[in-house]
Amino acid sequence: MKSLRLILPILILAGLAVFLYRGLSLDPRTLPSVLVGKPAPDFTLTRLDAPDQKLSLADMRGKVWLLNVWASWCTACITEHPTLLDLSRNKLIDIVGLDYKDTAEQASGWLKGNGNPYTLVLQDTDGRTGINYGVYGVPETFLIDGKGIIVAKQIGPMTSEFIEQKVLPLLGKK
């Protein structure tokens, strides 16, 4: 009984420490996405690079591709930009940009200044498509397979880990 009295507080403290430590390593801003493993929501949007043309989800069928949500007003997008440019140079995968709540002029200017990694860019001026994709912080990137299923999602800047661990295996490159 006496030894239990001594050990119990230590055990409780240890348990608390485990929970608190886990709390430290969790990022409260990254939410589990409900869309991973589900069909990508449909859209038909105007192209930034060719304003007379539209693109729908169905047009991407049969391809593995990335949908990268970005905006010219988004500061974190500059952080991920080199990674995207690198990826586009390898020409491994189509990167479709979703220009989220932005104007065509500003977006075009931004791409001219920073380089354009995108196969094509779609304009989501009112942010509706973004809402359908559950976007809550730009940048976000969706990895979509040939059947139109969202395989993975990156919240925040794109990383080389995401490319190595999610994108390349799906392409059969690793």
Partner: peptide, 8 residues
Amino acid sequence: LVARYGDF
């Protein structure tokens, strides 16, 4: 909203 953003 839950279908898009989850229970959160």
